[in-house]
Amino acid sequence: MSFAFRIILILASLMTTLYIVRKIRYSKLQIEYAIFWIILSFLLILISIFPVLVTIPTNIIGMQAPVNFVFLVIIFILLIKAFMQTIEHSQLENKLNDLAQKIAIDEKISRDRQKDMETADSIEKMENEGKVK
């Protein structure tokens, strides 16, 4: 790996971390979700500063180039993350459905109740008028 390329990698991972930290600073995301990104960005910095962290496992597994190992691992992490987000997404949609249905049904019930009360009122009124006459 050339020296210039390493500098670019280190700078890029530092800027990624900085960007993530800035977003967390202004409360753009919840801490639960921030944890994953913090760990991942630290991992990026670590790998860019100490590439030997990648070359050793590459040699152990017997892969040809460290870059293949990096791609494999990162893609796998992102794949799992994407799947987990699908699960979260589904659960959110489910909750949203529950909420919308609950609001709509509650509103229908309260309208029904009001209608019942109105009919009861008018029946009472009619009866009273009947008595007067």
Binding site: V21, I24, R25, Y26, S27, I31, E32, A34, I35, I38, I39
Partner: peptide, 18 residues
């Protein structure tokens, strides 16, 4: 524990108060 430690040691130190 992991969540709390990362949060206390790292995240909370640069959070901005509204």
């Amino acid at each position: 524990m992991l969540r709390m430690l990362i949060s206390i040691l790292f995240i909370q130190s640069f959070r901005k108060r509204k």
